[in-house]
């Protein structure tokens, strides 16, 4: 008899055939004497096996008192494993937050590509000359230089990201104005800073000789200095998260 028939008989006995398979099998059983006999004897085997009496135990298998191991200290009421998992989740969230912050810081300065004309249209109550001289040089040395030969952007061409950056620029200009006012009363910072005229070529519409403002000296190094810090914190949180996850898994 084929193996397929053996499996069919076994499945029939255990009630694991569906209605149609069961009907087909019963029909075959009625017409095939060999199959019927095999079915009956297989049933006899299974029935006899189920009736085998349990053997009496030769002895008890209870473990002797000598096998007792020292009692372990009671576990704390709070579940340490849950604590590890919670810490791991918190570290992961911190890692994501720090990486996001780092990416945002990386993306923000690079997104700002301004020309004086565009700045003039974006900053109300400021003449183009004023805008040019007070152009935030935190942007000028890096962002304007490669763009010198490109046509000036209009305000309409700003992307939302650039618009956000320009808001930051406007804030910087306001800060620079405040510092300039201080400088006029006697501070010597502005006069001491050299004009990087060789780095900024004049734009066709409005020739520029941008002079670095105090904000360019102060703000950019601060922004750069925060990147390694966030990355370091992200790395630390990743390591802590991994350690806590392993501890939580091993317990």
């Amino acid at each position: 008899m084929s193996e397929a028939n053996d499996e069919l008989i076994s499945a029939y006995m255990d009630g694991r055939l569906n209605v149609s398979e069961r009907a087909a099998f019963e029909s075959r059983e009625q017409h095939e004497a060999g199959l019927r006999q095999q079915m009956q004897v297989t049933r006899l085997v299974a029935h006899t096996a189920s009736q085998l009496p349990p053997l009496p135990l030769p002895r008890s298998f209870v473990l002797p008192a000598a096998m007792a191991v020292p009692e372990k200290p009671a576990r704390p009421s709070w579940d340490l494993r849950a604590l590890f998992r919670l810490g791991s989740a918190f570290a992961a969230a911190l890692f994501v937050l720090l990486v996001g912050l780092d990416l945002r810081q990386l993306a923000s300065p690079a997104a700002v590509v301004l020309t004086p004309n565009a700045l003039a249209t974006f900053v109300p109550n400021a003449s183009s000359a004023q805008s040019a001289t007070e152009l935030p040089l935190s942007l000028s040395t890096r962002a304007i230089q490669p763009q010198n030969t490109l046509p000036a952007l209009s305000a309409d061409a700003f992307t939302p990201r650039a618009a956000i950056a320009n808001t930051m620029v406007a804030n910087e200009i306001a800060a620079a104005r405040a510092v300039s006012a201080e400088a006029e009363t006697g501070a010597q910072l502005l006069t001491a800073t050299p004009a990087p005229a060789q780095t900024v070529a004049p734009v066709a519409a409005a020739p520029l000789t941008p002079v670095p403002t105090l904000s360019s000296v102060v703000t950019m190094p601060q922004a750069n200095a925060t990147w390694p810090l966030t990355r370091m914190l992200a790395g630390i949180s990743l390591i802590i998260g991994a350690v806590l996850a392993v501890l939580g898994w091993r317990r």
Binding site: L52, P54, L55, L57, P58, S60, F61, V62, L63, A65, M67, A68, V69, P70, E71, K72, A74
Partner: peptide, 29 residues
């Protein structure tokens, strides 16, 4: 039983008493 000590052994032996007949019979067969 996981806590150990004499109490742990007693607890495990309760499980032994409950299952030893079936375990022995499977091994025998």
């Amino acid at each position: 039983a996981q806590r150990g000590g004499q109490r742990g052994l007693d607890a495990f032996n309760t499980l032994v008493l409950a299952h030893q007949s079936q375990v022995y019979n499977v091994a025998y067969r």
